[in-house]
Design a protein around this nucleic acid. Sequence first.
DNA 1: ACTTGACTTAGAGTTCACTCTAACCCTTAC
DNA 2: GTAAGGGTTAGAGTGAACTCTAAGTCAAGT
Lengths: 128, 128
Amino acid sequence: MYSISEISNLTGISAFTLRYYEKIGVLPNPNRKNGIREYSEQDLEFILFINGLKKTGMKLEDIAKFSEDGCLKSQTEETIISDTLSKRIDILTEHLESLEQQLSDILAVKKVAEDKKAFYSSMLHNKR
Amino acid sequence: MYSISEISNLTGISAFTLRYYEKIGVLPNPNRKNGIREYSEQDLEFILFINGLKKTGMKLEDIAKFSEDGCLKSQTEETIISDTLSKRIDILTEHLESLEQQLSDILAVKKVAEDKKAFYSSMLHNKR
DNA sequence: ACTTGACTTAGAGTTCACTCTAACCCTTAC
DNA sequence: GTAAGGGTTAGAGTGAACTCTAAGTCAAGT
């Protein structure tokens, strides 16, 4: 079990931000003992994944949609589960497409940047 | 030769943003005819590269440092050129490191996202 | 002649994601 | 008992990167 400051140290996310994420629904409410947050190993893993989504450009609003249980009382157990699953699958599918786009952007920029760097280095070398 | 709206269409960057980039030094001033911007093929290429830097997370402030000539009158030709080259090399080197970090972040998230997606899909499948 | 699309400066407004403060309470370890 | 570390709400402030408006000028094409 981890305290909020331990999670903060392990993830690099400040305690402020962790509470903020909880408030806006990006992170689920963890178990509490005397009102104090106690994070499990699975909570930590989930937070790391969520942080990965954020680092790779997913908006907090969309992460919140992924995180939430979608437990509307008006729905049956069956529908809740299917809807939640479908929703999560959709969000992941879309993000995976974005990841492919990012990969190709990065590889393209990397190539040009390497070429330019080599070119500038050779100019610098010839000057001396 | 391209007009600002052509460049906007070709790059996906709005004319507003192109002028804004010029104002804050992210993009150099292009040639003008009667005060109207005329972009060359090389200008277009440079803009596409700059846009790649931005898309891969470089701050506009740093892009501006990369873009500027650094032509301080107090320096000799020699120093100007060497300083400009070294500066550009430094910026590219640092960004290439960031690109590596991004690649590993993306690959890590991609793996977990694919696993989760497969897991959710199988749950959904078993439900039906 | 008129429409279109360019130009200018200055500044207001927006969105996103924090980041922190205020002001106050509660519990556990030393 | 006191300090350290946790809790709450509400809201202010920050910084980055746009995004657009106002209000006017100008030049080329139909």
